[in-house]
């Protein structure tokens, strides 16, 4: 296949989860056709595999449990997610967060001192994005001498089984505008986050490929780190993504299964 020569040198795959493996939803979500089988084939091929997600609606343990129930053979050690990375950052900098996150994510911050907060941590809080909760975060930030807003990702939207939903990025922008601050992003597309995932993958960026449905956060972010990146035409993908003014994926694929087909074919060739 033309333009896929680079795939011969690939040694590891970083996969986005929502919109690549499955579409989330209140019902637990549904797998995307062929993706569980594709995951098995990657593992059987000897290629390295790691999941790189901006999922912040639940703990990694619960998230992995849900994926396993949907038929995906994955473990907690194979997942890089923003909340554990944020916990490390908070401890390093002596920050005590006020959390505006999903209730199911709170246990990830069990070991972090949350008294007398000196920063706000924003995740995909979904129903917790009420006016009262946003206002509380706003008042804390505006009252700080030097406001620190940490956002777990900055995605615009994502797809659930009942339609597209606003992601944390929209609310991050709202608080940035209200307080005239710049949020620090932990999660994709932050370079540090991709580098942490690559370290887990155990492959240098030039031998790794990122596969995701988000043109900016998955594809753009990974390319900034020196990786190849593919966009799947599943999940939040919209045809207009193919005219993105700044980001051009190394290739488009219809779904994860097709990406794996082509990469494995190139590896054999």
């Amino acid at each position: 296949m033309a333009g896929w020569g680079w795939a011969r040198t690939v040694r590891g795959l970083l996969l986005d989860v929502s919109g690549v493996l499955y579409d989330g939803g209140a019902d637990g979500g549904v797998p995307i056709a062929g993706s569980a089988e594709a995951l098995r084939r990657i593992k059987a091929s000897g290629l390295k595999l790691h999941l790189c997600t901006n999922e912040t609606q639940e703990t990694r343990e619960n998230f992995v449990g849900k994926l396993r129930a949907l038929g995906f053979d994955v473990s907690v050690a194979e997942v890089t997610a923003p909340a554990p990375a944020a916990c490390r950052l908070l401890k390093e900098r002596g920050l005590r967060p006020h959390l505006l996150v999903h209730n199911d994510l709170v246990p990830e911050f069990a070991d972090v001192d949350k008294t007398n907060p000196n920063c706000v941590v924003l995740g995909d809080a979904a129903e917790n994005f009420t006016y009262a909760n946003l206002n509380e975060a706003f008042r804390l930030l505006i009252g700080m001498e030097k406001p620190v807003l940490i956002s777990l990702g900055k995605g615009r939207y994502y797809k659930e089984t009942d339609g597209l939903k606003l992601d944390v990025g929209a609310y991050m922008k709202a608080l940035e505008y209200a307080c005239d601050v710049q949020a620090e992003v932990v999660g994709k597309p932050s370079k540090m986050f991709f580098e942490a995932a690559l370290a887990e993958l155990g492959v240098p960026p030039e031998q790794a490929v990122m596969i995701g449905d988000d043109i900016e956060n998955d594809v753009g972010g990974a390319q900034q780190c020196g990786m190849r990146a593919l966009q799947v035409r599943t999940g939040k993908y919209r045809p207009s993504d193919e005219n993105h003014p700044k980001v051009k994926p190394d290739a488009y694929v219809n779904n994860l299964a097709e990406a794996v087909d082509i990469i494995l074919q190139q590896q054999r060739g």
Partner: peptide, 26 residues
């Protein structure tokens, strides 16, 4: 407007929500 003042303190105005929608929809 970014915020407005109420008796019990500052409150988010429409600006932040408009900005969030602008960002999400480009």
């Amino acid at each position: 407007a970014r915020y407005f003042k109420k008796k019990d303190g500052l409150c988010l105005g429409p600006g932040p929500f408009v900005t969030g929608l602008e960002y999400a929809t480009d």
